[in-house]
Amino acid sequence: MSLDTGGKGKQIIHAGIQGAGCSIPAGLEGGDFFAFIPLGEDQLIVAIGDVMGKGMRAAGQMKELCTILHACTSKDLSLLEIINQLAATGGKQLHRAGSFATLCLISYEQQHNCLTCLSAGHPSPVIFSGRNIHVPRVRGVALGFLEEYQGTRPEQVVLSRGDVVILYTDGLVEARDANGQNYGLNRLKEIVAANTCLDAVELQEVILNDLFTFTGCRQQRDDVTLVILKKDRERGGECHGDQGK
């Protein structure tokens, strides 16, 4: 298990996926988080999220949510069941505190090369496959807003060798340069599309270098979190079955 709650990067190789992630808080502590959670030998759960606000309060809520997430993933539940449990427990805590959190959950099953994703108020992942760029249409209400999860059903995508999946928080695409211009999703897509031949760690470095070049390393107003998944092995199969199991 690998969990990042600070400014450090984390890497993983599991179920034929190479993963790299990093979180750069705007202040000493941030509310962004990401997690790589291997399940057995064949499945990898990836989560990225953003808790409202900044500082110690947001960081504390983020850690509580991560604890609940890890407890849910240990119960052999589908993605939809996990997000429902998170909404019923972590979401309720956030609601009581007048807060909320966005969350994007991904499950990858190596046996079927199948990636399943769900979102609770978080930007959808971006999938680069050859020359195609696909953004799954997964939408949902952020955790803490409502008593239960409301959103689209999970979307499934079959990954091919070399496909790249990008997950990010809004702090990345809303990072600003000296003129107040946003880095933007289009620039992120362009830099990734031009570098899909790289492995996940190298690609992360290229994106961050491009971001820092754009911002001039200026202090940003929001945390920046980026997770890259790259499918590095082929093992056949088609996408079917339950959501995220």
């Binding site: 939408r139 209400v141 952020a142 807003f145």
Partner: peptide, 11 residues
């Protein structure tokens, strides 16, 4: 756009 993503209008 950002508010739509978090489900603001749905709430």
């Amino acid at each position: 756009h950002d508010l739509e993503i978090i489900g603001f209008f749905r709430v």
